[in-house]
Structures are given as C-alpha cells and as structure tokens.
Amino acid sequence: MNVFRLLGDMSHLLAILILLLKMWKTRSCAGISGKTQILFALVFTTRYLDLFSSFISIYNTTMKLFFIASSYFTIFLMYSKFKATYDSNHDSFRMEFLVVPVGGLAFLVNHEFLPLEILWTFSIYLESVAILPQLFMVSKTGEAETITSHYLFALGSYRLLYIFNWVYRYYFDGFFDLIAVVAGCVQTILYCDFFYLYITKVLKGKKLSLPA
C-alpha cells in the first residue's frame, strides 16, 4: 500500500458517499445514469468473487464488501425508492454495446484462461468504460448538478491516482499488471474532457453546462 493507492481508494470511497448523500438528501436521483450504476454493480460483483478464494487484508475485504453493498443499494434507490425521479428518457445508452465487446475481449486477452481470472479481466475492462452512459447523459442534457460533478470528479480522480500508484509499484515493487494499467489509462482518458470542464467551470462556482 502506497500513498497514491490509499488516496485513490479514498477518492473512490468519497465518490460513492457523495452519490449516496446526494440521493438521500435530495430524495432524488435526477441526472444520475442508472445504466452506469448497474455496470458498476456488475464490475464489483465479477471482480470481488475472490472474496471467497483469497484473503488479502481486513482493509481489502471491508472495502470490497462496501463497494458491492453500496452499488446494489444505489440501484435499489434508483429503480425502486426514488424511481419517480429517475430520468430514464435521457439515460438511453445501450449497455449491451459495452458488455458484449468487453466480454469478448476478456476471453481473448487475459493473464490466464480460468473462470475467475476471465471474470476479473472482464470487470477491469468493463470498469474502464462503465462511466460512458453517465457521460452520455450529461452530454445529452447539456448540464450536470454541481453535486453530480463533484461525484464524477472524485470518481475520475480515483483511477488517475491509481496510475501514479502503478508507476510507484513498477519502480519500487517491480510490479506491473499490463491489463490493469492499459484499462486504467483508458478509463482516466475518458474523464479528461470532464476534468477540463470541472476545473474551468465548477471550481469557479459555475454550474457545469456544455456549450450548445
């Protein structure tokens, strides 16, 4: 565990807490993509099956359980409790366009052709593109609530911090996971446009809105 990894995890945790807090306080999930949240639940479920096969640390296990539980709780809030506020008309990205190619790629490019390993690879690839329905929704409506942009910023920062963590691990631990690094870089690149808007607009007190 190095400082970048810890900050990355905390940023990820913060993102989830911001999202839950936003929904709970406003009693609304307006502006949030249910598709992205379903994909995240799928990511956590397929990646953390190793909870049953290997133990790494209390920290690791606790975080995994929290990520899985919070992702299903988010889906429950969106599709059941606060269903009336869910903006499904603008959440029209087709999940199968991501899940099917990513599934195929996980079969073809993996560290080892074993069920758990293929599922882990699938989750890494899927996570890298899971934000697309949310970004698509923001671009479709042309705006995002400030709290939603804080959520997206924390979520994007998490993978950027992981890249620093991988650089650190490469030099100091001799550790290098090509699949995680390439997917992590793709994931971070997808946020670049949003990072730019966040820094130039939201941090200056303006609402995030896209030019018409």
Partner: peptide, 10 residues
C-alpha cells in the same frame, strides 16, 4: 510475482 497472483487492488 505474476499479476494474476496479486490482484490485491480494489
């Protein structure tokens, strides 16, 4: 270590 033996990240 091989990456697949050390999926120790979240």
């Amino acid at each position: 270590p091989s990456p697949k033996d050390t999926h120790d990240e979240l």
